[in-house]
């Protein structure tokens, strides 16, 4: 079965928040920066609204409400992980607007986040966006710099998961 059998969707990922897009390798947590969890990018959010990067289906919301898995219509397994080690907040600071099983469109809000509270608790608010079924060693070049959440396209992939230049 091809992961990228859809002939219509371009595998475009939008920024998940307003803020600066950085390479995954710049994330201050080896689990993400090493590519161990998959390839992708990260956003340093300036606003506490988090958007779905793709059209797809919400597969799960972590119990601590900080991580969202979305299966894209194009076959990508996407993990949006809000903040580093924020699992320890036990759900505080996060208000999901979706639940497992929901269909989402790219740009739909998936969560509201209290960035100030997360920072106050001593956690990094950076949001890694991973494609867990694309090898972390894949060299992707996301569009870096300021992006608008739910609007700016950060990555374009061809069918087959290769990057579209």
């Amino acid at each position: 079965m091809s992961l990228f059998s859809s002939s219509t969707s371009s595998h475009k990922l939008l920024s998940v928040a307003d803020g600066e897009v950085i390479p995954l390798s710049m994330v201050n947590d080896e689990a993400f920066s090493s590519g161990m969890l998959g390839a992708g990018f990260a956003v340093k959010p300036v606003k506490g609204v988090v958007y779905s990067p793709v059209d797809g289906k919400v597969m799960g919301v972590a119990e601590a409400k900080h991580a969202y898995s979305i299966f894209s219509d194009g076959g990508l397994e996407i993990l949006v992980h809000i903040g580093l080690d924020t699992v320890h907040l036990g759900g505080r600071s996060f208000t999901p607007t979706v639940k497992a099983g929901d269909e989402v469109r790219a740009g739909d809000v998936i969560a509201h986040v209290d960035l100030a509270e997360i920072k106050k608790e001593g956690y990094d608010t950076v949001i890694p966006v991973l494609m867990s079924n694309i090898d972390g060693s894949a060299k992707l070049s996301p569009r870096l710099g300021y992006a608008e959440g739910g609007r700016t396209a950060v990555l374009k992939l061809t069918h087959g998961g290769k990057e579209e230049k």
Partner: peptide
Amino acid sequence: RLFSVMSLA
């Protein structure tokens, strides 16, 4: 599969 393991919750 990361997705799969994580969705065990």
